[in-house]
Computed example of a mutant assay.
Amino acid sequence: MLQGGYLSVLEAKTRDEFRAEVVRFTQQLGFDTVSAVTVIDHTLGNTEFIAVDNCPSSYRDTFDDLSRARRDPVVQHCKRQSVPIVWDQNTYTAAGLGDLWESQARYGFRTGICMALHLPEGKHFMLGVDRDQALPRDSTELTRLVADLQLFAVHALDTAMRVLLPTQLQQESPKLTPRELECLQWTMEGKTAWEVGEILAISERTAVLHAQNAMHKLGCSTKHQAVLKALRLGLLR
């Protein structure tokens, strides 16, 4: 069921379709609310936020308050790191911000998982899911939840950049060299950099360099994101 969600979000063509797929996956994962935010750092310190979510209308004004976001420990964690954060009431009380948790808990934001993907050229993508019930106590089950959300975020990132960003900020289809495409192709097949080097008769260092060049051209921060984007653009089959 979740596998279909990964593919469906890649195929979304409009903002509304993207939002529907994000909400659907979130609810399949066992969470009630979700926020998917594209962040663009412009020059002169200006930052633009473009979001889709299913926040309750009664909580909308508080949810959209940027001054609150600047205090929120979950948002601040994602601003600085790419490691997902699993949060609950203790996350806020430990930061001396129990009042923030109290204000959101009555609307169902009691615990959740949030993560950010940081891209070149001042672009970021943040995905957070929330619910009223406690998260699983079993560490294996919780780890699986986080992994599912991470994989979905990688898929959703490309669509978010395509359907949420203004046209002038969208990246044109890049020109990858044959060797860069070969490295991505073998990466898609699950090969390590060392194995790619052996297959292509080049050094592991050179294989890594080709993959990094492809990532940069595609505007991606990991080789797995680069593979997904290359597939969507028709550069790989």
Rank of each mutant, 00 (worst) to 15 (best):
N90L: 11
M1K: 15
A94N: 11
P84M: 02
T159A: 03
T167L: 00
H224D: 14
K175Y: 10
I85W: 02
L228H: 08
Q76P: 01
Q81W: 13
V83G: 14
S67C: 06
L231W: 05
M215W: 01
D16E: 02
R106Y: 10
L235N: 09
T167M: 03
V9A: 00
L117G: 06
T140G: 13
M126V: 04
K223R: 15
A134Q: 10
R19I: 05
L169M: 12
S139M: 07
P56M: 04
G30L: 00
I199P: 09
L169R: 11
S139F: 05
F49C: 08
E21P: 02
A214F: 02
R137V: 15
R131P: 01
P166A: 13
A214M: 02
Q81Y: 13
E182N: 06
A20C: 04
D99T: 07
R24V: 06
S58K: 14
T192V: 09
S203L: 13
L145N: 11
Q133W: 11
A20W: 03
I85P: 05
T140P: 07
T177R: 03
N46F: 03
V39W: 10
V196H: 06
R144S: 14
E172P: 13
E172W: 12
L233N: 04
H118S: 08
G98Q: 11
L142Y: 06
A230M: 05
T38D: 01
R131S: 03
N46T: 04
V86E: 08
L117D: 03
H210A: 05
A153G: 07
L117A: 03
A94Y: 08
E204W: 09
V163F: 03
W87K: 07
T91M: 12
R237C: 08
E180T: 12
L228T: 07
S221G: 01
V34H: 02
M215G: 01
V208A: 07
D148H: 13
A153V: 05
G45K: 12
K79L: 15
V227T: 00
M1Q: 14
V146S: 10
T62D: 07
K191G: 10
G234E: 03
K217M: 09
A69V: 01
V39G: 04
F152V: 12
P136D: 02
W194Q: 15
